[in-house]
Design a protein around this nucleic acid. Sequence first.
DNA 1: GTGAAAGCGCTAACAG
DNA 2: CTGTTAGCGCTTTCAC
Lengths: 354, 354
Amino acid sequence: MARRRQAVTIKHVAADAGVSLQTVSRVINNEPTVREEMKARVQASIDRLGYVPSIAAQRMSGSRSYLIIAVNDRERTIADWQARQGTDWVDQMLLGGMLKCSEHGYRLILELVDTHSDHVERELLAAIAALQPDGIILTPPHSDNAQIVDLLATQRIPFVRIGSHQNGAGIPVSMDDEGSARTATDYLIERGHRRIGFIAGSAEYNLSAWRIDGWRTAMAGAGLDCEGLLAQGDFSYASGEAAATALLGADNPPSAIIASNDQMALATLEVARLRGLRVPEDLSIISFDNTPLVHFTQPPLTAVDQPIAATASKAVELIIAAQKGDELPDGLTVISAAIVERGSVAPPSGADIG
Amino acid sequence: MARRRQAVTIKHVAADAGVSLQTVSRVINNEPTVREEMKARVQASIDRLGYVPSIAAQRMSGSRSYLIIAVNDRERTIADWQARQGTDWVDQMLLGGMLKCSEHGYRLILELVDTHSDHVERELLAAIAALQPDGIILTPPHSDNAQIVDLLATQRIPFVRIGSHQNGAGIPVSMDDEGSARTATDYLIERGHRRIGFIAGSAEYNLSAWRIDGWRTAMAGAGLDCEGLLAQGDFSYASGEAAATALLGADNPPSAIIASNDQMALATLEVARLRGLRVPEDLSIISFDNTPLVHFTQPPLTAVDQPIAATASKAVELIIAAQKGDELPDGLTVISAAIVERGSVAPPSGADIG
DNA sequence: GTGAAAGCGCTAACAG
DNA sequence: CTGTTAGCGCTTTCAC
């Protein structure tokens, strides 16, 4: 292809408005030291010529790049896309992140990075060198990956750790996993459940532990025993199947199960069906994440919503604020999650109605 | 934030390798006119220092930006994201497009643009000016939007029109809507169906018409009448409900229905259920697109897959080829679609078994 | 408040 | 085959 040049540059605007490049630059960047009259004149030229600054040039001269990178786990993301089961983590991130970005003239660029790879560092550094982003959003499980966090800490680039509670470098934004697990458990307790099983997610994700904590806390708060009610899963359907089978096959099975994600809840539903248990009459189920599949199950699943869009939006806000040198919130930013009621919860049948 | 500079630049590499900037540049760009020995030496320095070229700087000097923009319809995309029904068009595009991009050191940037807006031009031009992309991917309904296509034609930027048959500027890549509608219709005919209804999609999308054409052609080819078997929808669930109701409430209702997308197929399934029709025994259904929801219906839907990932991947290939000045394919590039068999098709019951 | 000069990191064009 | 020079479009100094 032939060499392409910017159609209309700051020079054209300057000439058109009869001012120096500098003044135009000041208007673009909304600097205060320009007389209103000048500003108006320049702005008029900008509008007339349809001038838009080149991000590359802005970045070159040491200014912002107006690019924010969202780092997701490569393996998991690709697997989800290929499975076509409707997992919409990426979509929700784009919904929240992209829209907030475009409000401020930024763009969000998705990057897939391996968690396990021995060249995570190289991959990330390469993305930073190539793109010179103004900020980076880390998603689980990267958010608590020490290697990544330490690396970014040396880079002078503001970064947000989504779904993280941990202190340290970067700005943590929590989706309140512990609190919402507690809420879900309380929700079941209020409806009379006493034996509430919990299917945990992959230990590779810290949020798995937090969700367990929330469940434990709520159970303890109601004076209930957790013994034999915790089963380990890894977020996959198969692991949910195994966990649900173990839980429901025990001597004193739960009357309700909380699954740490929708796939495992779906598996639980199927295991229940195979065992002749009606949901919600014989078994209540609450799932986590509230991905699209909850609409399509029979019955539709009551679920703890994972507020990904709101969190991504907040992450972008924080990065832009940090970029501008604004004051950041002191403590942990928490985006709270709500329970979306559908058809998979009812009071327990039989004698243990409280 | 403090002003950030590239950590390691072409200068560092040049100094380290004891050569000129230009030679390093040549190695980076894989130009043939460098001795193997030099190349190796420079490459060694690059690896040692972990050097990655800044795309901003590359773009500045009139070279490639390594950025490809994927333009999607804003309204529809946001609506899909918010509905959380599992529509995974964007995901599939990213799956195909991003991965192919990263094979070649490119990045894919998603842009949402209004189809209807009177400032489409400004939006697009702004994105081009800001990003200076090396290529643009247009998706339906933008692919056949004359305003957009004409605009891009003046921009010397290679662009692909996904899901388009039309000639004119840009590189059309078809997902074989006409052919796959024909295949789906033939598939039903082979199984003995004679009255095959068709629910059309929104006329705003050209593919809607092509799908109708495919159905008509197949019906005509088998000597079957289309009279009273076509119902207009607009891709929404509600429109599918209305269309299915009309079709199934007619005097001589179809024994099979092809819906132009999954949402309308889902609606058809529900209408059938309400009318006491069993699927597939009393009514066969084939849907289009093969989005995630087809897994979750009862029965799971047999569907024509829309090969979005493969198409996006091909689009990126074509853009990179065009960018390099390579020969492009002569005619229309067609990515063929297959039928994914699930549980919603059976031979018709009753007398009209052929 | 506004302008002029210098330079960001890289590649195109031209020398040698 | 390799090096030198100029300049991309913009912002950062620093003058006025």
